[in-house]
Amino acid sequence: MNIENLMTELSHFVITYGPKLIGAILVWFIGSFVIRKITRALHTIMDKRDLDASLKPFLKSLSGIILKLLLIITVLSMLGVEMTSFIAILGAAGLAVGLALQGSLQNFAGGVIILLFKPYKVGDFIETQGYLGTVKEILIFHTTLKTADNKIVIIPNGNLSNGSLINYSKEENRRVDFTFGIAYGESVEQARKLIIDIFNQDDRILHEPAEPFVALSTLADSSVNLTARVWVKGENYWPVFFETNEKVYKAMNEAGISIPFPQMDVHLIGNKK
């Protein structure tokens, strides 16, 4: 009698759950095959779009985990497992972890955004968060800068992705701005010609997108100021800036053009008797 009851229960189980079990197994194998195809396709797309090497394995793993999780939930649902409570618990746990790791998750999301959209890359010279430096390393949670005086600055990616940033290396050419002061009474035309001649003798100075420019800009307290602008390759910015200042200073001295310094004239008026 016990054997008959056991066989009856077994038959009932097979009839009731057999089709569900077979369907779940089929869905698992087919789903796993589709997930492998999708992850390979994503990897191919990332290669074609030349994504950062450190971002590719992360995105591939993340997409695989999400798809596998969805497949597991689907298979368990097919077997009759009630998933509502499980999903609610999973959501609550995810919320708790998210609140606990809020700062880290912000930096993580910022790192993904930076690696995807590439506002800067390794080797670029940038200014951000009050720092100037060359990008040494871009990681998921932070970016490392190396300053001109050889300091290492580590900046969270959350701040970088949400804050203002100047990338001095993004464009091939940069404009160099100068201000040269001459004394009142000196010839503006002579000073302008002298500066233009210095620019024309420097092969590093470009004539596109604009020719070298010199014009009187300010009648200051102690000087007449000339503004000069030239275009150069990015790597020549500082050499041209420093060397041109020195050349103009020497040329003005040789030409007898006075370079003023801040001064004040005091007029003494005697008491009338």
Rank of each mutant, 00 (worst) to 15 (best):
G64T: 14
E4L: 12
T84K: 15
I72R: 03
K37E: 07
P212K: 00
G23Y: 12
G98R: 11
A24V: 04
V97M: 10
F241P: 01
S217G: 11
L268A: 11
I22L: 09
D50Q: 12
G181S: 08
A210L: 14
F180C: 00
L51I: 03
T143F: 02
T144Y: 04
A24D: 07
D265P: 01
I126G: 04
L226Q: 01
I166Y: 05
I30G: 06
L51T: 00
K247A: 02
Q102F: 14
K233M: 13
A148S: 11
L70Q: 07
D221P: 00
L59D: 05
E254D: 15
Y168S: 02
V240L: 02
P57F: 00
E172L: 12
F178C: 03
S61C: 11
G31F: 06
I72S: 03
L219E: 13
N253G: 13
V97Y: 15
T227P: 03
G31H: 02
K56W: 01
I66H: 06
A148P: 05
I195T: 02
V135K: 01
K37T: 08
I89N: 09
W231S: 04
E254H: 12
Q263K: 15
L226F: 04
F241D: 01
F213E: 09
M78V: 14
A215E: 14
L55C: 01
E189W: 03
V248F: 04
V240K: 02
S54D: 02
G130V: 02
K247M: 07
I126A: 02
S11R: 12
A93G: 13
G163A: 11
L6R: 07
N225Q: 15
M7P: 08
